[in-house]
């Protein structure tokens, strides 16, 4: 068999294949639900209800979507330039570290000054972390997939070391956690009594800015060109290595903002479970959005809804909540297949 590019994907194909991917994901998940002794329809209804069935549920979904938007954007910008940053998890934690190092009393400033400083500091921390692998890639040709993956483990141990050492909360009853950031550093809640905070608004703003950068600036054009064909880009006079470094700074900074937002908006302090695999899930979010920054917002909310909905479904129907993780992974695999099928035709011979 061989693949032939379609001259112009038909409207029906661009609609049908992704719908097929969704259907395949639902079928696979139904089998798992049946294995767990539950009715698939009940499971899906309970997930939907848990994700968006009430104002509370919807606010929880948006709260969970917030870090996923940041990591999704980080992956989207990096993958666009074919910089395989699998280390958003680590960059998010570095953002959290920078936030608590400066935000717990080192800088006694009013909120309008302190919050931008913390944002800048956490972005810098995440950006510098990805700069290492980007430098090793451009300078020595070391594959960034492996280095960014390994850095996830190193940074998590580093965070654990800080939380049991210099950043340990003396009043934390022995728990490995940092002290809370100053009240001036906290992002306010959007609605009183709900956990949704202004980190969500920040995430939306970040995605709009990134969309403008990607579509309307020279840097965005260069990133796409480098991702499409590095050799041709170099030949056309694009400074490929410098574009990759800028991409790394942007990507690492965006992921780190997720850490900043989780600490200042939601948790108040740093713990070693700040991220529930947000870095890895961000890859799925970015791919489902076809690397479009605005699409990332929608896909992050969708993915967050599955996780939040599955948590409440699991309590009600007794199906392990890991079904959400399976569903998201299957969605990734079926969706990349569907996107390919809209662009290529399979010829059997």
């Amino acid at each position: 068999m061989r693949l032939e590019p379609k001259p112009a994907p038909s409207f029906a194909a661009t609609l049908l294949y992704p719908l097929g991917a969704v259907a395949a994901t639902l079928v696979f998940t139904s089998v798992l639900a049946l294995l767990a002794g539950a009715s698939p329809l009940d499971v899906f209804l309970l997930v939907a209800k848990g994700a968006a069935g009430s104002q509370f549920a919807l606010m929880e979904t948006l709260t969970r979507a917030t870090p996923l938007i940041f990591t999704g954007l980080a992956i989207a910008v990096a993958f666009r330039a074919k910089l395989w940053n699998i280390g958003a998890e680590a960059q998010l934690y570095m953002g959290g570290v920078a936030t608590v190092v400066l935000g717990t009393g080192a800088l006694p400033l009013p909120a309008p000054l302190l919050i931008p400083i913390l944002m800048a500091a956490s972005m810098l921390a995440g950006a510098l972390l990805l700069l290492g692998p980007a430098f090793l890639k451009t300078r020595f040709g070391v594959d960034e997939v492996v280095t960014t993956l390994l850095l996830n483990f190193i940074v998590l141990l580093f965070v654990s070391m800080l939380l049991e050492g210099p950043l340990k909360d003396p009043m934390g009853m022995g728990w490995p956690q940092s002290i809370k950031v100053l009240p001036e550093a906290r992002l306010p809640r959007i609605i009183t009594g709900r956990r949704l905070h202004y980190g969500f608004v920040l995430a939306i703003v970040a995605s709009v800015i990134l969309w403008v950068v990607m579509k309307r600036t020279t840097l965005g054009y260069e990133m796409r060109a480098v991702g499409h064909n590095p050799e041709a880009s170099r030949f056309a006079g694009i400074p490929v290595n410098s574009v990759l470094m800028k991409t790394a700074l942007l990507s690492g900074g965006l992921a780190a903002l997720g850490g900043f937002s989780e600490v200042t908006g939601l948790k108040g302090n740093l713990t070693s479970d700040l991220s529930a695999n947000f870095g890895y899930t961000g890859i799925v979010v970015a791919m489902l959005a076809m690397l479009n920054p605005l699409g990332v917002v929608a896909s992050a909310i969708f993915v967050a809804g599955i996780f939040v909905g599955a948590d409440s479904m699991s309590r009600a129907a007794g199906v392990p909540s890991y079904i959400a993780d399976v569903m998201v992974a299957v969605a990734l695999l079926t969706m990349v297949t569907a996107i390919m099928l809209t662009r290529f035709r399979i010829r059997w011979r």
Partner: peptide, 11 residues
């Protein structure tokens, strides 16, 4: 595949 195999195993 890593996400799929891991989550299916945990499930």
């Amino acid at each position: 595949i890593t996400l799929f195999a891991t989550s299916l195993t945990y499930f």
